[in-house]
């Protein structure tokens, strides 16, 4: 029986294609879907995770979350939402803003991310320290967001934060957006403090509010190496961008290879003794879809 002789170049081409396509004779999946390849992806993701967890501890501030947040946009965004929901606009209060500033600096100083500090200091302690005698008060926190709109949108979507945002019990608000290094990551912490003064005559005037808005700027944690005011956080590497891109790229690449596997196997009638490709696709697609839908650009508490 005469054997079919193939040109070496054609052979090489097919060898390369088998990285992406199932093998007809061996009845195996594409090489990039083999157990060895899957183990390699697993190791790659584990190394990436280790890198992003270890580097901030060894070189604080190198990694971080790029952001450009300003108080004017946070304030206007909040009031826009309140007006849309038939609520009165809040006034920007200087005492609440100072309290928010102190809270943000305290979080950087003691390296925590919570409503209550490790020493037991509560949000109300910061407000009372500024001699703001309140009837009602509330606090919203955010970190790792890219811009002001993202922060306000996330607060609005979160039921507990929306409750503060749309509460009729508040007349005033104070903001702080402070840059610094938290847990080794360069980031911007946003503090929003709400209040209603016990003496309603003390509510900030429009003049006071405008002065405050014109003077507002992002400050930097006193612990940072460069205490100058910086309008935006620009770390050497943006953690969110890097991890999201890599994770979705690996997931998407796997889905692409699995779809290719189904298509080519059906076309060529290749029967493989493996797990179910369709089940793998279903699982990966549903997980990545869920992740995509719920993906938040930052963190809230």
């Amino acid at each position: 029986m005469p054997s079919k002789i193939t040109h070496p170049k054609t052979h090489k081409k097919y060898q390369f294609l088998y990285h992406f396509l199932p093998h007809q004779q061996n009845k195996t999946r594409a090489r990039l879907l083999s157990h060895g390849a899957l183990l390699t992806y697993l190791a790659m993701v584990a190394i990436m995770l280790g890198f992003f967890l270890l580097v901030p501890k060894l070189f604080p501030g190198v990694l971080g979350y790029a952001s450009s947040i300003n108080i004017k946009d946070l304030f206007n965004g909040t009031n826009k939402i309140r007006v849309q929901n038939n609520l009165s606009e809040l006034r920007l209060n200087s005492e609440l803003s100072k309290a928010a500033q102190e809270k943000a600096k305290d979080m950087f100083k003691y390296n925590y991310w919570a409503h209550v500090s490790p020493t037991g200091t509560e949000p109300w302690d910061f407000i009372l320290a500024q001699n703001y005698d309140y009837m009602y008060a509330g606090e919203n926190l955010a970190k790792n967001f890219n811009d002001s709109k993202g922060v306000v949108d996330a607060w609005y979507r979160s039921p507990s934060h929306r409750e503060n945002l749309l509460s009729p019990n508040y007349d005033e608000v104070g903001y702080a957006a402070v840059n610094g290094v938290l847990d080794g990551y360069e980031t911007t912490l946003v503090v929003q403090l709400f209040g209603r003064p016990r003496n309603l005559a003390q509510i900030a005037t429009v003049q006071e509010q405008d002065n405050l808005l014109n003077n507002s700027q992002i400050s930097r944690s006193a612990l940072a190496r460069n205490p100058a005011t910086v309008p935006a956080v620009l770390p050497a590497l943006d953690v969110s961008l890097a991890t999201n891109t890599l994770s979705f790229a690996i997931g998407g690449f796997l889905i692409f290879l699995l779809i290719l596997d189904i298509w080519y196997s059906r076309k060529k009638g290749i029967l493989k003794f493996t797990g179910h490709t369709f089940a793998h696709i279903t699982f990966l697609v549903l997980v990545l879809l869920g992740l995509w839908i719920t993906l938040s650009p930052g963190r809230l508490i």
């Binding site: 157990h35 183990l39 697993l42 995770l49 991890t243 994770s247 690996i250 990966l284 992740l291 993906l295």
Partner: peptide, 13 residues
């Protein structure tokens, strides 16, 4: 492998 890899991708994000 598929279960672990998918979980690790989600965990990273």
């Amino acid at each position: 492998l598929f279960g672990s890899l998918t979980f690790l991708l989600v965990f990273t994000v």
